[in-house]
Computed example of a mutant assay.
Amino acid sequence: MNITINEELRSYIDPLTANEYAALERSILAEGCRDALVLWGEVLIDGHNRYAICQKHGIEFRTVQNANFSTIDDVLLWLIDNHLARRSVSDFQRGVLALRKKDLVAARTRAQQDSALPVVAAELPAPAPIGTREEIAKIAGISSNTISQIEKIQKTAAPELVEAVRAGTISINAAAAVASLPSAEQVAAVAGGKKELQQAAKLVREKKSSARPARTDDPLEAPSAAPAKESEVVNEAANEVALLSARIDELTAENTALKQQIATLNAALEDANRSAASA
């Protein structure tokens, strides 16, 4: 069987982390390759990691054909929808995939409008144009505010910060705040780890909050600058909630660890008492 690897397709979806790849490898070694690889002719379009693991260990695998594609864009749109249907995909990945779908659909629509030649329709139904951030959010299954933050991360975040979001080291809204810093400061925050990233995000929010004009009930004393828009206030509130939620998670983890330590000490004390009683 001839299987061809198309590098554009292989790298189109974010690669698995080292831990995810190791878990997949353990699963295939224990249970075999349960899911069939998907081919378009001889081109592998889904299952690159499974294929690599099976080749490495000489494990058998099945293949299925999907002949409904006319162009590479058809394949890319199918890949996006296929991955968005998986529950294991993170919110950041969902947002990135939905934004890619919007760009693909827009490019296809422009090409069809600009071309004087008849367009050969694909077997798959053509997706409807994606016009608003709300439509993108609906495709991704996340909020429009999160989509806005992901767009900011894509435009201004250093590669190291993007990788930190992908790995779950920092939340999307915290990363969007850190992405407003100079690239060197972003890289330094990532190098400092999770707490350093959270602190950097907090400082950015505090700086933004202090720069906002103070509010007053007396219109004669009100500053000349326009008050913050309602959407900005909502975003700030959401950021604060996320920061508090992250802190709660940290405290919960610390509390759990302390309980485990106490349980271990109690068990050791009971063992010592029993030993002393039997002596």
Rank of each mutant, 00 (worst) to 15 (best):
S148W: 02
S148Q: 10
Q149K: 06
I150C: 02
K152S: 10
K152H: 12
K152P: 00
Q154P: 01
T156L: 12
A157R: 04
P159N: 03
E160T: 11
E160A: 15
E160D: 12
L161K: 04
E163S: 12
E163W: 00
A164M: 11
V165W: 01
V165K: 05
R166M: 03
R166N: 10
R166I: 06
G168T: 04
T169R: 15
S171A: 15
S171G: 14
S171H: 09
N173Y: 00
A174K: 06
A174H: 06
A175W: 02
A176L: 04
V178F: 03
V178E: 01
A179L: 01
S180F: 00
S180D: 10
L181F: 03
S183N: 08
S183E: 12
S183A: 13
E185W: 11
Q186W: 04
Q186P: 05
V187T: 11
A188C: 07
A188V: 08
A189W: 05
A191H: 08
A191Q: 08
G192I: 07
K194E: 13
K195L: 14
K195D: 11
L197H: 05
Q198T: 05
Q199K: 15
A200R: 08
A200I: 08
A200H: 09
L203C: 05
L203M: 14
V204G: 07
R205F: 04
E206T: 06
K207M: 07
K207Q: 15
S209A: 13
S210I: 02
A211I: 04
R212P: 00
P213V: 09
A214W: 04
T216N: 08
D218W: 03
D218R: 10
P219F: 04
L220Y: 03
L220V: 08
E221K: 14
E221W: 03
A222L: 09
P223G: 01
P223R: 03
S224F: 12
A226S: 14
A226F: 12
K229E: 14
E230W: 11
E230N: 08
S231A: 11
S231C: 01
S231T: 14
S231E: 12
V234C: 00
V234P: 00
N235D: 06
E236C: 03
A237W: 07
A238G: 06
N239A: 05
N239P: 00
V241E: 11
L243A: 14
L244H: 13
L244R: 14
A246V: 12
D249A: 15
E250N: 06
E250H: 09
L251F: 13
A253I: 02
E254A: 10
E254Q: 14
L258T: 06
L258P: 01
L258K: 08
K259G: 13
Q260A: 14
Q261Y: 00
